[in-house]
Nucleic acid binder design. Structure first.
Length: 422
RNA sequence: GGAACCGUCGCAUAGUUCGGCCUAGUGCACCACCCUGCUAAGGUGGAGUACCCUUUACAGGGUACCGUGGGUUCAAAUCCCACCGGUUCCGCCA
């Protein structure tokens, strides 16, 4: 949720943000109107209620013979208080609905427009060249006995898979490598619940326009999380944090579930886009003034990881229309996938500023003792999808795949993944 | 699935009998000052959260909040109804 004071004092800034996102600009005026109606309704109710309270005390103290007359007098006031209270409640609800529909005001410099209007901040590494016809990740995965899509479909349906043998080990190795790096960067590891209550899912902002992406279990009224960001954000909900010494940084390890509704026909081959995968997610609670520096820090950790794995990538500044409502800025890192001749997203790092924290009521105390929302950030440090880029980038003519040096300690020193013998 | 107990201003608790001296008390922790000389104790005072209004600011006034939502009433932490959550025990089970 955006800051209501900012809405009141600087509506033009929010309008400009809505414009850049391609969202409704009128919504800002609607929210402003709802705000003033709400305040008028509250003022009326509070004044009447105050009168009633005074009167009520008088009744309590009155002699029995006086009570009857006083009661007759106050009954009508009581009815008006009730009506004013209901009106104030409704006005409040209208305002909340309006303001919650407004996206997080984007940070200066975020490119306007939609999915294709991103800005490339930098690229790293040459795109790998092969003197043979490179195989795609699924062909390699099958040669190595690492990926079994057919049995995944048999057991669970399309977009499910088995990671087997070296495939299973590779994913665990990646996750462990990421965890080690997160640990040395000061993150606290956290294995999170993957089923969450509605108010947590709603608080993180995922129940908006993308709610059909989310698995829901009606019998239990619980949602399956598409990222541990949800549980990590909910972890400190309704709390007042002490961030004076340093930020709170967590590394969440969890399986992620996504319905992939609306992506029909896209990336149907292999494990690029699947219903279930594993992810190590970084999450930080920081003072709002430190959010942008923390954002850069998260991206740097991601780049270190990708470089250690010998992947070629580019870092993009995602355009406003592609941010999602909670993020004020988002940096994606996309790795080169040789057989696609394209960069594909491996990480996503969002600065949600105070937007998410305001919805989840996560605050800290300022020097003056006032409570105010913290800033939250999240970013990927490893996911199952990385296997795609690793296999394709480091493949050899015979179908074997060189293990990047940094990953070898996590695979018992293994230097090369070899195709299975037939 | 069954049963019992529980949910109060950071934490721990009192208050619910019988609605109105609850403007929600107390302890711990916290802040300021005082006293005291020795890593302690004592004294005085302050201090919940959110919102609304006034104000340049400092600050002041008001309203709400006792798990949530309804209801009764002039008046609800307290009475009534529904729901949610937690703990423990029992049953069943991978």
């Amino acid at each position: 949720m955006i800051d209501p004071v900012l809405l009141r004092e600087n509506p033009d800034l929010i309008k400009a943000s809505q414009e850049a996102r391609g969202d409704s600009v009128e919504l800002v005026d609607e929210a402003l109107a709802a705000d003033s109606e709400r305040r008028a309704a509250i003022a009326l109710f509070e004044q009447l209620r105050s009168e009633q309270n005074v009167f009520s005390k008088k009744v309590g103290r009155a002699a029995p013979e006086e009570k009857k007359a006083l009661l007759a007098e106050v009954q009508e006031l009581s009815a008006r208080v009730k009506a004013a209270s209901a009106a104030a409640g409704e006005a409040e609800a209208r305002f909340t609905t309006a303001i919650r529909a407004i996206g997080n005001p984007i940070i200066d410099g975020v490119p306007a427009g939609g999915e294709d209007n991103f800005v490339t901040l930098r690229t790293h590494g040459d795109t790998p060249a092969f003197d043979f016809e490179p195989r795609d990740h699924l062909e390699l995965g099958e040669l190595l006995g690492a990926i079994d899509m057919a049995r995944g479909a048999k057991v669970s349906g399309a977009r499910f898979y088995f990671l087997k043998g070296i495939g299973a080990r590779l994913e665990i190795a990646l996750m462990n490598m990421a965890l080690d790096r997160a640990l040395s960067a000061g993150f606290t590891p956290l294995i999170t619940p993957t089923l969450v209550r509605p108010e947590i899912m709603d608080g993180t902002g995922f129940l908006g326009e993308h709610s059909d992406e989310i698995y829901y279990l009606p019998a239990d009224d619980l949602y399956l999380t598409g990222t541990s960001e949800v549980a990590l954000a909910g972890y400190h909900s309704d709390e007042i944090l002490d961030l004076s010494a340093e930020p709170l940084r967590y590394a969440g390890w969890s399986t992620c579930y996504r319905r992939e509704a609306g992506s029909g026909g896209k990336d149907t081959r292999g494990i690029i886009r699947v219903h279930q995968f594993n992810k190590l997610e970084m999450f930080a609670y920081v003072l709002p003034e430190n959010a942008e520096a923390e954002h850069d820090r998260l991206v740097a950790l991601q780049e270190d990881m990708l470089q250690a794995l010998g992947l070629s990538y580019r870092v993009i500044d995602v355009a406003a229309g592609d941010l999602g409502s909670s993020a004020a800025r988002k940096f994606d890192i996309e790795a080169w996938v040789p057989t696609q001749g394209a960069y594909r997203e491996l990480t996503s790092t969002s600065n949600c500023t105070t937007y998410q924290a305001r919805r989840l009521d996560i605050r800290y105390r300022t020097d003056s003792g006032k409570t105010t929302p913290v800033a939250t950030l999240n970013g990927t440090l490893a996911t199952t999808r990385w296997i795609v880029a690793i296999l394709e980038t480091h493949q050899q003519a015979d179908g074997s795949v060189i293990v990047p040096e940094a990953l070898r300690p996590y695979l018992g020193g293994l230097e090369k993944m070899e195709p299975l013998q037939r």
